[in-house]
Design a protein around this nucleic acid. Structure first.
Lengths: 352, 352
DNA sequence: TGATATTATGTTATCGATAACATGTTAGCG
DNA sequence: CGCTAACATGTTATCGATAACATAATATCA
C-alpha cells in the first residue's frame, strides 16, 4: 500500500531520483522544481517550501549532466597536463584545483604523454565532446610542439589558455618570467663578486630552459663578460643529468667560480658532486638553482634559488580562462592577454 | 544558393555539428549514423561509406555528454585527491591518469582541502551529478575521517575504491603495505648491527604513519628489544618538522645509533642536521627513509630508503574500479577486494 | 474600473545522442 | 515456392534537465 512511501523510495538507491519524481511528489510541474532549485524567477513561498521539503526527503540532486546538455554549458574546465610525476606540474595543478573549486568549476583531466600531433586533436576533441567550457593547456612548449596552435586554435569553440608558453599575439597565456629569473640568478652571482659564471641548462628547445639560459647569457654580456659554449652544459632536469652536466662543465670551464643551474633537482646533484670532490661551496663555487622546491632549504649547504610561484600560476590561469568564458557568455569581445609571473630570489648558504 | 555548402558549414564553427546534420547531409536517419559511429549492428557497406565521408567532411564528433545521458554511463571516473602539492599524491595521480587513458576513461577531479565532513557529501554528489561511472578516493586516512564510509557508502550507486586506506571487510581498497615497509626498514637496520634504533614518525592518527611506526615497534620487540616513548618523535612529513623531531630525539635517546624516518623529506633534514653537528652518517648514525623520491639518491650521503611504487598504486586502483564497473554492468556480483602493494628496500650510503 | 504590470505556474520544445521497436528487403533452405 | 533468418533502415520514446512560450491570478495605477 505504501508503495510510494519515502523511506522505501530512499531504499531503492539504484534508481536515480529525477526532477520528475520531485515534481510528482510535490504536486507541481518539473519547471517549478527547476525554478526552486535555481532560486530564479517567481515561486510562491508556500510552493517553494513544499518543494524544498520533498527535495530534502527524497535526497534529490539535479543531474549536472542533463543540465549541461540543455544549457550547452558544463561548468567544467578541460585541463591537459604533461608528466605529472614531476613536482612542478603538480604544484600548478594544485593552484588550478583550488581556484576552479572556488569559482564553481570542475576539472576534466587529460594527460599528454608524448608529442604526437595526432593525439593533440584527439585530446581536444575528447574534451569538447564533454562540453568543457574552456581548456587549460599545461603542456610545456618544446620546439614546435605548439605549432598546431596557429591552425587549430581558431576552430576550437571554447577559450583555450596556455601555461608556460612563449607569449604570442592574440593567444592568452600565463607563464613564469623565466628570462627574468635567469637575469635575477646571474645578477645575484655577479653581485657576489663572481665573474666566471657557468650554466647548466634544461633541455635545448624547451622554451623555459632556453629563456633561463638567455637570461644568464644576456646578463653576462651586459656586464661585459663574454659567454662561450664551454661555459654551458645541458641537462634534462633530472638529478642524474645534472651530475653529468656538472662534470662536463668542470672540464670545459675549469675557472668557473659560480654556476646557475636551471632547476633545483639538478642543483642538488651539483652540490653532492662538489662535496665529493672537495670543492667548497660557496667559497670555491657558488651555486644557484631554480624552482624553489621546499627541500632546497635543507640541502647541504642550503640552496640559493629562484623561486617561482606555480600555485599562483595555476590560479591565474583558471581566473583568466573563466573571465574569458564569462565574457563570451555575455557576448563581449575577448581580449587575449599574456601574463607573466615574476619569480623571486631566495638567498641561502650556497651563494653566501 | 550554396547555403548548405560544406565549406560554409565548416566555417560556421560556433554551431556544433550534430548527428542530425550528418544524417541530413547523408540522407539517412540519425539512427543509421549512430550505427556507423558505433560500428555496431547492420549497415550496408555503401551507406557506411557515404556516412563516413560526410562525417569526415563536416568534422562531426559525437557529443559524449549526450551519449552519457542516454546511456546512463559516462566513461568518466571521479577522483578525489588531497593536497596535490606534495609529490606523493601526484605520483599516484600519474599512474591513475595513465591507466585511465589506456582503458578509455577520463578523469573528473576534485580536490579535498580539509576534513570537513559536510564537504564530503558535496564532493560525492557533485561527481554523481556528472554521472561518473566510479570513484577513486585518494584521500589519506586520518583518524576517523573515513568514518562516513559505513553510513554513506551503501547509498552511492557507483563503485568506490579507496587508496591508502586501512583495509576493511567489504570495502575495496589499494594501499602500500606500510607496516611491511616499517618492518623492512627496521630489519635492515638490525641487520646492519644496530640495536638502538629510533623512529621519526609521521603525524599520529595518520594511518600510513601509524603503520610504519607499528612495523618499527613490532620488529624491535620481536628481536627482543624494548621500545619506549623516548625512542620516537613525531613529525608532520615536512623537512622542518623532521629537523625538530630529530633534535628532540637526540636529547631523549642519546644512545641512538640508527633512525628510521617515516618519509624521505624528513630524512633529508636529518642528514643535514647530523652533518651540521658533526655526526657521521652512517658510522655513528644510520638513517633510512621512506618513499623513494628520486632526489634521495642524490642526498649526501645518499639515502637508504623504502621505496613505494605509487605509480603502480594508481594503476591498480583504476584497474580495480574499472573491473568493478564492468562487473556491475554485466550484473555480476562484485567482490570487494583489498590489495596491498609491497614496498622495497633500496640500500644506499646512509646505512652502509 | 478597466488597463497594464507583476507574480505564479504549467505546457511544449529542445539539448544530442541511444534504446526499443517496427518494417521492409534479401538470401537460404527444405 | 513459400517460410524463416539475416540484413538494412527508419520511427518513436527516452535520458534529465532548461528555454521559450502560454496562461491565469493578483496587484497597481491612471
Amino acid at each position: 500500500m505504501c508503495h510510494k512511501d519515502n523511506t522505501l523510495v530512499l531504499a531503492d538507491r539504484r534508481k536515480r531520483i529525477t526532477i520528475k519524481d520531485v515534481a510528482q511528489a510535490a504536486g507541481v510541474s518539473t519547471q517549478t522544481v527547476s525554478r526552486v532549485m535555481n532560486k530564479f524567477s517567481y515561486v510562491s513561498g508556500e510552493t517553494r517550501q513544499r518543494v524544498e521539503k520533498v527535495v530534502e526527503e527524497l535526497g534529490y540532486r539535479p543531474s549536472t549532466l542533463a543540465r549541461s546538455l540543455s544549457q550547452q554549458r558544463s561548468y567544467t574546465l578541460g585541463i591537459v597536463t604533461f608528466d605529472l610525476k614531476y613536482i612542478g606540474p603538480s604544484r600548478t595543478l594544485n593552484g588550478i584545483a583550488d581556484k576552479a573549486d572556488e569559482l564553481g568549476y570542475m576539472l576534466l583531466m587529460k594527460e599528454l604523454d608524448n608529442f604526437n600531433i595526432n593525439r593533440i586533436d584527439d585530446v581536444i576533441d575528447s574534451l569538447l565532446a564533454r562540453q568543457v567550457d574552456g581548456i587549460l593547456w599545461a603542456v610545456p612548449e618544446i620546439r614546435d610542439n605548439h605549432a598546431w596552435v596557429d591552425e587549430r586554435l581558431k576552430n576550437i569553440p571554447v577559450p583555450v589558455l596556455f601555461l608556460a608558453m612563449q607569449p604570442r599575439d592574440g593567444i592568452p597565456s600565463v607563464a613564469t618570467n623565466n628570462f627574468q629569473g635567469g637575469v635575477l640568478a646571474t645578477q645575484h652571482l655577479l653581485d657576489c663578486g663572481r665573474r666566471n659564471i657557468g650554466h647548466i641548462s634544461g633541455p635545448q628547445g624547451w622554451w623555459e630552459a632556453d629563456e633561463r639560459k638567455r637570461g644568464w647569457q644576456e646578463t653576462l654580456n651586459a656586464a661585459g663578460i663574454k659567454t662561450s659554449a664551454e661555459q654551458c652544459a645541458e641537462g634534462n632536469w633530472s638529478p642524474v643529468s645534472g651530475e653529468q652536466a656538472f662534470i662536463q662543465l668542470l672540464n670545459s670551464f675549469p675557472d668557473m667560480d659560480a654556476v646557475f643551474v636551471a632547476n633545483d633537482q639538478m642543483a642538488l646533484s651539483v652540490l653532492r658532486e662538489a662535496s665529493r670532490r672537495g670543492i667548497n661551496i660557496p667559497k670555491q663555487l657558488a651555486v644557484i638553482g631554480f624552482d624553489g622546491i621546499p627541500e632546497a632549504a635543507y640541502f647541504c649547504p642550503s640552496l640559493t634559488t629562484i623561486s617561482q610561484d606555480l600555485q599562483l600560476l595555476g590560479e591565474q590561469a583558471v581566473q583568466n580562462v573563466v573571465e574569458m568564458i564569462q565574457a563570451r557568455q555575455g557576448n563581449q569581445s575577448v581580449i587575449a592577454q599574456s601574463r607573466f609571473i615574476q619569480p623571486t630570489l631566495v638567498v641561502r648558504e650556497s651563494t653566501k
